[in-house]
Amino acid sequence: MAYLELENLTKHFTKRKGLFTSELQTVRAVDGVSLSIEKGEILGLVGESGCGKSTLSRLIMQLLRPTSGSVVLEGERLADLPASEIRKRRRDFQMIFQDPYASLNPRMTVFSALAESITTRHPGLINNRSALEEAVAELMERVGLDARYIRKYPHEFSGGQRQRIAIARALGTEPKLVLADEPVSALDVSIQSQILNLLRKLRDELDLTMIFISHDLSVVRYIADRIAVMDEGKIVEVNEADRLFEEPQSDATKMLLSAIPQVRF
């Protein structure tokens, strides 16, 4: 039994065709996606803009209810759970976003941002300031931040350091599944590598299960164990990362590969 299973997951959006007609138009944003991910695996998800990556990730994160199909985490069908129960499960699945300038609250210090996340899993720590501070410091060190900066605000950090804070915040709830949505696209090349190394290290240390969304195939090839290619709401190809590059099967994959800028030597 796989750790995370997507069973024929489908999301259709309907909208009126025009202002003065009652005729409906259906957009099949995610159209029958089935995928399974093992514990400790990093799955890369790639595809052009508009292929349904974001809708799929919202479905997995339970931010959208599927039209049909379901998400099964550790054998439990999340769609069957009532909304109140989903709320409690949210700490089990966390997201890392593209832009660390936008995803951190500028008015919260590193301590309050991380403490908020840690106490959702360990509410007992709220009244134990020193233990909480220790937990925050430990989390900061895990992602390679100096715990001396615990009282600082996001604007006092560089882009790469901010992304580390965002990662720490996602890990603070001790999630079962992390969905990283273009986590390095906004960063410089040299910083990109630091964050990729960190994500790999965390996977190895914590046995994290991760879905890594990116349009940069070379980054995905490096970090992912398997890659799923999405096109027009469907998964058109899934393969081991290196195999996918060496023997692309679908047209969508071939097109994505041919678009990568190549370093000429």
């Binding site: 590598s193 990729l196 090839r221 490096y222 370093v263």
Partner: peptide, 10 residues
Amino acid sequence: QRSIPALQKK
């Protein structure tokens, strides 16, 4: 140049 991920081994 060395930090381009595409040029590095998995």
